[in-house]
Design a protein around this nucleic acid. Sequence first.
DNA 1: CTCCCGCCACGACTTTTGTCGCTTTTTTAC
DNA 2: GTAAAAAAGCGACAAAAGTCGTGGCGGGAG
Lengths: 223, 223
Amino acid sequence: MADKAILFKRLQSFDFLRGLDFETLTRLAESSTWKVYAPNEVLFWEGEVESNLFYLQYGSLKVLKASPDGREQVLRFITKGEIFNEVGVLAKKANPATAVALEESGVWLIPRHALEEVILAHPGSALQIIENMADKIISLVTLAADLSLKSVEARFIQLLLDQAEGDLIERRRWTNQTELAARLGTVPDVLGRVIRELTKAGLIEMDKQQIRILDRAGLMDRA
Amino acid sequence: MADKAILFKRLQSFDFLRGLDFETLTRLAESSTWKVYAPNEVLFWEGEVESNLFYLQYGSLKVLKASPDGREQVLRFITKGEIFNEVGVLAKKANPATAVALEESGVWLIPRHALEEVILAHPGSALQIIENMADKIISLVTLAADLSLKSVEARFIQLLLDQAEGDLIERRRWTNQTELAARLGTVPDVLGRVIRELTKAGLIEMDKQQIRILDRAGLMDRA
DNA sequence: CTCCCGCCACGACTTTTGTCGCTTTTTTAC
DNA sequence: GTAAAAAAGCGACAAAAGTCGTGGCGGGAG
């Protein structure tokens, strides 16, 4: 079990808790619990009511919705340091999506009652949470519009350009074509085809370890 | 200009303002302004920063994102009594979408500073706003998943079943095939084809005034 | 009244996306 | 290390979505 002192330090660094006093943070840390999830383990299912706020200390997750026939649409990736499940915690609604660990992930669970206390006592933190949710609304709006208005190729190119540091994208264990396809809202075959075409056109190069952008301008043209 | 007394009454009926005292509501009403928009008039554009909260007193609006080539994806319809632009007001972010009046619409504009005062003074109202935003997140998540995982036909059938009162849907002036198509994330031709197929299959009947569901079970089967 | 414009109907065609079957390669589990 | 499972490559095909052209109907504007 991770030390509560770690969480305490983390809590101090959250934007939305900034400026809270020692006792408040201690109380939050005291009532929270720690959990480690294995790769592919589910944190919560679509339709469940989950009343903890999650703070991801290490690892990475995906949030998705699945169709009856097994296809999935990834709505969001969560990396170290992010909080999630504001919807379940604060709106007391059934969760609209499923959260799954992509790799081993360590998570703090902060119970609803502790959080509500903080918000009522410190209205400024509510504004921070609202900003946080606004960011999510913005990215969901963008996702919906992209799914409807852009081709798979355009979405893939945008993903490449967003993710690239310099002209390189490091591939991790879970950055395989199947996962990328779910992220783009398509199937692995189609993504594979797009990759082949972009490779043949000399725009990108892809192997197991990385994706390299060879012609940034050319990519932008096609998107 | 509509009487501020009307807004005052309305404010009293907002969920998120419930329980506020007389002076607070009066102040809100005092600092708000009233505006009427003509059909097809734009309330705000994607990318603009808009610092008023809107309350739609009568009329109806659509919120959409457009692609360079002119297609649009409607993200949300707003009807009488709803508030919108929480994102712009509270998160101080550029608006992710454009809002357009579908018919003549009367709107109250509540400025940011007045709203922030209320929230800081009454943390409970922040929780109400958070719930409001959570609802939006949920419906955007659903929209994104539907766009990615369901066919146009399935989305149209779902729209029919959601909107129907009894087995009837009244068509208003702006419920034409062009608008319905934008709402479903497709083009009028495709929607027209789907309508013809469902009609030929004896599942629905559609004229200028209304859409009638003839075989609810049959529709659900196909979706 | 009539001309014009927007909406809709419909068929033909193109493009995009998704599916299938089969093979090879890579990863994982034991 | 080896066997089994998962991922990926690839071509052929099928289905869904989008585009284009033509033409009809009907409701304003003049």
